[in-house]
């Protein structure tokens, strides 16, 4: 196989990445402008801004500081940027609640506390799974299975919890939004949980459940929605592709040998990135065939990040020209670009 991507100079982090699903978020502001990276280390979010030529970096670290400082600082489950038409926000989901920052991490604009009991319960409490949906919503999953829908004004801090979606009974793992950029698809969002259940939603006024795709008692750790198609990755190392609205299974890939931690899709080209604890990153090509309502999949590329349990992998652009990878205990972001 011809080498499709080659390794670039890594970006150093102030502290190593923790083993958490989807532990890398990438925000590209504009072509030839800055790229922002966010990686969680225990109770800290490492933010790095890189110039487009990869020559200049600036670092910032966010602590999970909550309203009540008398209690311990909590562990963070995920940090991700949410891109809305009017503004970009950095959302941090932790054991104690949900924090929303201006995209550079400078100002916290909103804090939502989770209901945590005085003495710890057998079932852990945390928020996990972050996505911006449509023009003004940010959805965040919770360990109870609820999906919290926040209404985001175009500016200011008057953010409100507008809806709580209660269809999952297990902890939410990830939330994906329709990323093709096209309005022709009915489904806007898909949420996944620890039992592998997928809920497909549309948001017109209120959120409406379109379909429930049952799981197989194995966690779905990462989920994407592209051209109406749900792409879901599981603890078995498999990737499944479903038609969101009907739940029809289009394809199944025996992709990895251990838990998949991250999926990403390059919406303009249909390139799919998958990365797992087995130290492999794989690139696939998806092609929807509207004539017979099917999808074609091609495997394009493997990269073995030696001795690294990968916890985050994201394309750095909409075409899939470059991607970035993080791994447990690794204090760098490894970058690859097309040869």
């Amino acid at each position: 196989m011809a080498k499709m991507y080659h390794r670039e100079k890594s970006i150093q982090l102030k502290s190593s990445a923790s083993a958490l699903y989807n532990n890398l978020s990438v925000l590209r502001l504009a072509p030839r402008s800055l790229t922002h990276f966010a990686v969680v280390h225990a109770n800290v979010v490492n933010l790095v801004s890189a110039s487009w030529d990869g020559l200049n970096y600036s670092h910032r670290q966010l602590q999970s500081k909550e309203g009540n400082m008398a209690t311990s600082s909590s562990l963070i489950m995920q940090a991700a940027w949410c891109v809305l038409p009017s503004r970009d926000l950095l959302v941090v989901a932790s054991q104690k609640g949900i924090q929303m920052f201006e995209s550079d991490g400078s100002i916290m604009v909103y804090w939502h506390a989770l209901d945590t009991p005085e003495t710890p319960t057998a079932k852990a409490i945390f928020a996990r799974g972050i996505a911006a949906v449509k023009d003004k919503y940010i959805c965040v999953g919770v360990s109870s299975g609820a999906v919290l829908v926040f209404d985001i004004p175009s500016k200011g801090s008057n953010i409100t919890l507008s809806e709580v979606l209660e269809e999952h009974t297990e902890a939410v793992t990830d939330i994906g939004l329709e990323c093709s950029g096209s309005a022709e698809y009915i489904a806007d969002m898909v949420s996944a949980d620890d039992s592998g259940l997928l809920c497909v939603w549309k948001s017109e006024g209120d959120f409406q459940l379109l379909n429930k795709i049952p799981g197989f008692d194995i966690s779905c750790s990462s989920v994407k929605l592209w051209k109406g198609m749900v792409i879901a990755a599981y603890g078995t190392g498999q990737i499944r592709l479903y038609e969101g609205v009907t739940g029809i299974l289009h394809a199944e890939i025996n992709a990895h040998t251990r838990w998949i931690y991250s999926l990403d899709i390059a919406p303009f080209t249909g390139l799919l990135l998958s990365a797992a604890e087995d130290s492999f990153v794989r690139v696939w090509h998806l092609n929807t065939v509207p004539e017979n309502n099917s999808v074609e999949i091609e495997h394009l590329y493997n990269e073995c990040v030696t001795d690294t349990q990968i916890c985050g992998a994201k394309f750095c652009d909409g075409d899939g020209y470059a991607f970035a990878v993080t791994g447990y205990d690794l204090s760098e972001i490894i970058r690859y670009t097309q040869a």
Binding site: T236, Q238, A251, I253, N254, E296, I297
Partner: peptide
């Protein structure tokens, strides 16, 4: 876990 290397389409 299944042996990796197989894509099935339906």
């Amino acid at each position: 876990t299944h042996s990796p290397g197989l894509i099935r389409m339906f």
